[in-house]
Every structure is written in structure tokens, then in C-alpha cells.
Lab assay of single mutants.
Amino acid sequence: AIERGSKVKILRKESYWYGDVGTVASIDKSGIIYPVIVRFNKVNYNGFSGSAGGLNTNNFAEHELEVV
């Protein structure tokens, strides 16, 4: 089962992080479509409006993740 702290591989082909491994930061139990927040070591794009980097978290559905 996917739980907080799990290392997961991203299976969503259109994702910037496809094939990468991230760490589960949290799981939303409220029934939303993409409840699993995954944190990565790298950012997906340069930040804007003065922020240092881009996003390094993204929401995924459990079926888009594979525990490694």
C-alpha cells in the first residue's frame, strides 16, 4: 500500500516526472481524484515572481504510482 514516506515511481506518461521516483508527502483521504502528494528532489520548471525554484511536489492518483 502507498503511505506517507513511501518511495514511488511515477507512471503518468504526460507528467514531467514520468519514470522518476519521489517520496509520498501526504495522502488526502477526502475522496479527491488525485489524493497522493509526491515530493521530488528536483523542480519541474524555473520559478516565477521571484521564487527560487519551481514546484517539487505534485498530486497523483494511486494508480499512477508504483511503490519501489
Rank of each mutant, 00 (worst) to 15 (best):
K7W: 14
N46H: 12
E14F: 08
V43Q: 07
S6V: 13
A1S: 11
A52V: 11
V21M: 05
W17Y: 05
G22H: 02
P35H: 11
R39E: 08
S15N: 04
N41R: 12
G50M: 07
F60P: 01
N58Y: 12
P35A: 13
N56V: 10
W17I: 01
V21A: 01
E14G: 12
Y45K: 15
V21G: 02
Y45F: 12
I10P: 01
V8K: 01
N44G: 08
E3K: 13
V38A: 00
L65P: 01
F48A: 14
K29Y: 12
N59S: 11
D20T: 10
K29E: 10
R12L: 05
E3A: 14
K9E: 01
T23C: 14
S15W: 04
S30F: 06
G54N: 06
N58K: 05
I37M: 14
G54Y: 09
N44D: 15
G54S: 09
K13D: 02
F40M: 02
V38P: 00
V8W: 00
Y34A: 07
K7P: 04
D20F: 14
N44F: 15
W17S: 00
E62T: 11
I32A: 12
E64S: 02
I27C: 05
E3P: 06
Y18F: 12
S30P: 04
A25G: 04
R12E: 01
I2M: 07
I37Q: 11
I32D: 11
G5C: 14
A52L: 10
G5Q: 02
N46I: 08
P35R: 14
Y16Q: 06
I37C: 15
L65H: 01
G50R: 02
K7E: 05
Y45D: 15
I32K: 11
G19K: 05
L55W: 09
S6P: 04
A25N: 05
K13R: 12
V68L: 10
V21P: 00
R12W: 03
N46W: 10
K7N: 06
S51V: 11
G22N: 01
E14I: 07
N58T: 09
F40E: 00
A52D: 14
K7M: 12
I33D: 11
K7A: 07
A61W: 06
T23S: 03
D20H: 12
Y16G: 03
V36M: 04
N59T: 09
T23K: 04
L55C: 15
N41D: 10
F40T: 00
S30D: 05
S49H: 08
G5F: 05
Y45R: 13
G19S: 04
K9I: 09
S6E: 03
R12Y: 02
S6M: 14
K9C: 14
D28K: 05
I2A: 03
K9N: 03
E3I: 12
F40G: 01
N44V: 10
L65F: 03
V8S: 01
G5T: 02
E64G: 01
W17R: 03
Y34C: 11
D20P: 02
V68Q: 07
E64I: 03
D20C: 15
A52E: 13
Y18W: 04
S15E: 01
G22M: 05
N59V: 06
R4D: 06
V38Q: 00
G31A: 11
V38G: 00
G54Q: 08
L65A: 00
Y18M: 02
W17D: 00
L11R: 04
K9V: 07
V38D: 00
S6N: 07
S49L: 11
D20Q: 08
N41C: 15
K7L: 14
K13F: 12
D28A: 08
H63M: 05
N59D: 05
E66W: 08
V21S: 02
V36K: 00
V36E: 00
I2N: 02
V36C: 04
A1C: 14
D20M: 13
I27S: 01
I33E: 13
E66L: 10
Y18A: 03
G53I: 11
A52N: 12
A25W: 13
E66T: 06
G54K: 05
V24C: 05
S51G: 12
T23N: 02
I2E: 01
G5S: 03
A52S: 12
I27N: 02
N44S: 11
G5D: 04
A61R: 03
A1P: 11
D20A: 12
N41E: 12
G22D: 01
E14Q: 10
A52K: 09
H63K: 06
E3V: 13
A1M: 12
E66D: 04
V43C: 15
T57E: 13
G31F: 12
E62M: 14
V43E: 13
V8L: 00
E3C: 15
R12C: 07
N59F: 08
G19R: 05
S51Q: 11
S49Y: 13
R39H: 07
V43T: 11
L11P: 01
N59R: 11
N56Y: 13
